[in-house]
Each structure stands twice: as C-alpha cells, then as structure tokens.
C-alpha cells in the first residue's frame, strides 16, 4: 500500500494559493459549494436541480473564476455580528432617547400623519428586497457571493424591524397611526404603486445574473437613497425629525456596503469575461426605467409633508446618483 505522505499543511489544500496563507475571511468563506456546476446527486429531472441548472448554470452571466470575488469588507459570521451589534446599540440608544425625552410630543401632528401614511409601509417593499437578496444568495455560483447575499438579506430584516419599531413607538405616544393599518397605504396608495410594481416584477426575475443586477445595481441604488437618505433623511430633518434621520443614517451604512460589494462583483465579472459588461448593461437598460418610474411616482409625497421638499430636486438627486453608481460599477477596468 502507498506510504502515507506526512507533509504538513499550513492551510486547507483547496485554499492554497502560492505562499500566501488565506486570511481568516478567505479561510471560512471560500469554495464551500460542492454542487456548482451541475453537481447535485439527484436526477437532473428533479425540479429544484433543473431550476438551478437553468437559472444558475445557464445564466447569461458567466465567469471562469467567480472565486476571484472577495467581499471588500471581508465579512465573516463573527465579524458581521460584531459590526451589526455595534450599529444596533447605536440605534437602541436613539430609540431610548426618544422614549426618555418628549421628542415624540414635539413632532407636528401633520408629520406624524405623514409618517403613518408614507413611511411605515416601507417594510413591505423592503421585505421584497430581503426576499430577492435571499434568492441571489441561494443561486450564486460561489459561497463568497452566497454569504454576501445572506448578510444583505439579514440587513433588510434589520431595516424592516427598525421601521416597525419606530412606527409602533410613535403610535404608542401619539396614537392614530396604528402600524397594523399601514398595509393599505402600500396596497392602495397611489404614490407607492410604481414601487410595488417594480418589487413584484423583480421578485420573478429568476435568472441569477438578472436578479443580482436588478436588485443591487438598479433597484437598491434608487430605493435605498429614496428611503434612507431622502425620505427618512432630508425630508425628516426638514420636518424636525432628526432622530429618524439618525436611525436611517445607521441603516444606510448597510446599504453602502451592499453597493460596495456589488460594485466589486460586477468588476470581477467583467474583468473575468468582458462581455459580461454588455449583459449587465442590457439588464440595467431594461430595468432602470421601472426604477426611475418608481422614484418619480413616490416622490410626489414629498410635497405632502408639512414642510415640503421639492420633489423634482429629490428625483434628480436620486436618479443622477444611481446612474453614477451603475457607471462606476460597469466601467471597464483600467489596465
């Protein structure tokens, strides 16, 4: 029988790259999917295997080495909880400060009504973002992308829960803005309908590459800005609700990371296979008008706030910034 070689490994053999040892992030995040490509141990006829082979293996978005992607934040499980626990501690502090002061009593009645109508219901579209992110994660060809999708999905849960908490907190103090009633504004409120259409259609964009592009290169750069920076940011502060701005400043840190890793993934995909730039661009062209329409329809509410903010200005800021994002993400790498 063959003698056992006693060479000692410094790291897992599949993670060896030259002489450099993998970082802790690389060690725990790399090459964890055994089923890509085409490797489920069931008949190819199994409907879920087929689903993967169609929407993952046969996606127009392909690369030779997806493993070249690395999360720029190097998020590990432990690192994620550390980071998010710190952020949540900050938000806890803000919410406690609201409780312990007469902050809510001083908000204008019209602003409370405005939030009831146009803020609390955001937990529905954000849940759509959470679902799509979970989809991107489960369909990704490599584990580093799956992890980013899973953490992003959890970040959206965080945002939903903070919106829900804040809505309930306000209602407990001021009354008349029962969060349980807010679904009606999402389902029937005119300004929300284009947002709703965008989310509903994006939920059924099942091609893996398309789902990633639509969610992270098109929808989120628009809607995250609309919610975190404009509605709960500029408009809230203009109406004296600086605490809401602070809360969403923290939530927006998550959104900035979503943009950052997505930009990196797009960069890697294009550097690996240049024609991917065209594929991204085709999806962006197809979906951007819907995202723009969603922003355009929703920003009308900015004119309904007690202290108004010019809706056209908001629209212009968001669409210009989102366009810059896509441009940066799809820029041909230099060199």
């Amino acid at each position: 029988m063959t003698e056992r070689s006693e060479k000692k490994l410094k790291t897992y053999s599949m993670l060896q790259t030259g002489r450099r040892l993998p970082s802790n992030y690389e060690l725990v995040s790399s090459r964890l999917h055994y089923h890509y490509p085409h490797n489920f141990e069931l008949s190819n006829e199994n409907p879920v295997s087929k689903w993967y082979y169609q929407y993952r293996e046969s996606s127009p978005l392909q690369a030779h080495d997806w493993e070249a992607f690395a999360d720029p934040r190097s998020t590990t499980y432990r690192g994620y909880n550390e980071l998010q626990n710190d952020k949540e501690t900050v938000v806890d502090g803000l919410l406690r400060e609201i409780d312990e002061s007469n902050y809510d009593d001083e908000l204008a009645a019209e602003w409370v009504t405005f939030l009831h109508r146009w803020y609390g219901a955001w937990r529905f579209p954000v849940h759509g973002l959470e679902m799509i992110s979970a989809y991107v994660g489960q369909m990704a060809p490599v584990s580093r992308i799956t992890n980013a999708g899973a953490f992003q999905s959890a970040d959206e849960m965080r945002r939903i829960q903070r919106i829900a908490y804040r809505s309930a907190q306000l209602n407990a103090r001021r009354g008349g803005c029962e969060p349980g009633e807010q679904k009606a504004f999402w389902e029937d409120g005119e300004p929300f309908q284009a947002v709703r259409e965008l989310i509903e259609r994006a939920l059924i964009a099942y091609d893996w590459g398309e789902a990633f592009t639509v969610l992270n290169l098109v929808i989120k750069p628009h809607l995250d800005r609309l919610l975190n920076e404009e509605l709960a940011g500029v408009l809230a502060a203009t109406n004296g609700d600086t605490m809401l701005r602070e809360i969403h400043f923290s939530l927006n840190e998550d959104a900035l990371w979503h943009r950052e890793w997505s930009r990196e993934l797009a960069r890697v995909a294009i550097a690996d296979t240049p024609v991917n730039a065209d594929r991204f661009a085709a999806w962006v062209d197809e979906w951007r008008p819907r995202a723009v329409a969603a922003v355009e329809s929703y920003v009308s509410v900015f004119e309904q706030a007690p202290v108004r903010v010019d809706a056209n200005g908001v629209f212009a800021r968001i669409t210009a910034a989102a366009e810059e994002d896509v441009k940066a993400a799809l820029a041909t790498p230099v060199g």
Partner: peptide, 9 residues
Amino acid sequence: DWLDVARKV
C-alpha cells in the same frame, strides 16, 4: 408590541 408587524409582511 411591534414584532408582528415586522414579520407579517
């Protein structure tokens, strides 16, 4: 007091 509205979405 608030979790249901965050889960039943």
